[in-house]
Amino acid sequence: MLLPRGVPEAGRLAAFNALVRGDRATVCRAAEVPLLDQVDLLWANGWQPDDVLHHTRVALADAKQRRLVPDLVAADRAGRSTQAIDPRWQQQLDDAGLGDAQARRGWLARWSAREGLEGAQLVLAVLAVVETLRVPPLDFLLPPPGRPDQPLASAASAPDRADPVLVRVRRLLAKAESTEFEAEAATYTAKAQELITRHAIDAALLAANRGRNGEAPTMIRVRVDPPYADIKNVLLNVVAAATRCRVVVLGQVSMTAVMGTASDLAAVEALYTSLLVQGQHALAETARSAPPGARTRSASYRSAFWLAYADRLGERLREVTDHVVAGSTDSDRLLPALQSQADALDAWVTERFGTLGTSPVRGGWDAAGWTQGRLAGDTAKLATGDLRPTRRAIG
């Protein structure tokens, strides 16, 4: 690396001073290889382009440093033009809006010139990025470039985005996000949860009929951004639990692992995103007319709001799930089938992560924030008869 760990402080300072005295071209030539080596190590440790770009957006406070990372990933991509790349990996690269690097050499000098950095500022920016990319390994969810035989966290395939049930769920949640009417948003959300629960019941009964345990567990990683990341993880856990999934928070990287069947995971990701958007909208409305420093803008108020919002939504989602399960015409076989799937998932999670613990949720307490959070999550009734379409078509 530029300034290797394990070298005495005096040696590190001497290496830093030598880099600072070099001109821009010299520093960039020296830095390109260790930066690309660091990215190669990330791919070998289970990271994906989306993971790296998200982590650095959150972890790097300096905008110039953040803009270095897409150029770095683009340079890595340019050096792998002849390697086999998984289509899902390639899709992440295509969607990322990467820099214009066409080769593994020369890209850092163009970035530094564009950002107006040289000397100590340039060296410190590069070192900050290198340090930020020193992160723990993750589970392999996609094979990295050039390694098609890399073992993955699960052999289960990703959910088919053309699955008609999941398409309907996404449409309902999109409507829930876009409507200005709270009761209407809750109706759409409840209907989406009802659909995915019925979908899971059908799959469990089909597997039971065939003498199988159902879909093999698999895993996704969900980005959970600050502020209030620990409380947003509470909301994610609430959604996952109501959708028969398990959650493990990944420390240091602003991501959370969610385990379950492929279809349930697709529903969790969509539902969590929708509820997060709706919660942010409701919180923004309470603060829209409040002056700076007002109670509704305080950290205690917002923490209490998010906790109450998650608490009430947990109740509502459980009501929907319990109602659908209770309405099954084949409950004698359904409950053992669902329990068998839950046991298999718990065993899989334990095998991957060992014994798990819990951590306290940080934040203050505010009675008004709690009340507003409950109100934001407490709207439409959830009995089947109350899930009829409003004036906007459902489905």
Results as ranks from 00 to 15, higher is better:
274 S>P: 00
137 P>N: 11
65 Q>E: 15
154 S>K: 04
86 D>L: 04
381 K>H: 10
370 W>S: 15
114 R>V: 01
292 P>A: 09
11 G>H: 09
188 Y>A: 13
255 M>Y: 01
260 G>D: 07
312 R>F: 03
285 E>D: 13
348 W>G: 02
54 H>P: 02
281 H>R: 13
152 L>V: 08
82 T>W: 14
108 L>R: 09
124 L>D: 15
100 D>P: 10
234 V>A: 12
24 R>M: 05
157 S>I: 07
159 P>V: 11
154 S>N: 01
387 L>F: 00
283 L>G: 06
282 A>D: 08
123 V>S: 00
281 H>K: 15
108 L>Y: 15
255 M>F: 03
53 L>I: 06
121 Q>L: 14
106 G>H: 07
49 P>N: 05
335 L>C: 03
127 L>V: 14
269 E>W: 10
367 A>L: 08
342 A>D: 13
305 F>A: 04
170 R>G: 11
95 D>Y: 10
203 A>T: 08
136 P>H: 03
349 V>P: 06
197 T>C: 04
14 A>R: 12
95 D>M: 12
242 A>Y: 01
377 G>L: 04
175 K>Y: 12
200 A>V: 05
46 G>E: 00
177 E>P: 00
135 V>C: 05
377 G>Q: 05
122 L>D: 07
304 A>Q: 05
374 R>G: 08
344 A>C: 02
365 W>M: 15
102 Q>N: 09
383 A>F: 15
254 S>W: 13
135 V>M: 10
103 A>C: 08
136 P>I: 05
245 C>Q: 02
265 L>F: 01
167 V>W: 10
144 P>M: 01
40 D>P: 03
375 L>I: 15
98 L>W: 09
362 R>T: 15
17 N>M: 09
296 T>H: 00
87 P>Q: 04
217 P>S: 06
51 D>H: 11
321 T>D: 12
116 G>I: 04
382 L>Q: 03
286 T>R: 12
23 D>K: 07
140 F>L: 13
314 G>Q: 10
148 P>V: 02
92 Q>V: 08
34 P>L: 07
123 V>C: 04
22 G>Q: 14
156 A>T: 14
119 G>K: 02
269 E>G: 10
65 Q>Y: 01
160 D>H: 04
5 R>K: 10
42 L>P: 00
245 C>L: 06
250 L>R: 04
56 T>A: 11
229 A>Q: 13
260 G>V: 00
86 D>I: 02
238 V>F: 00
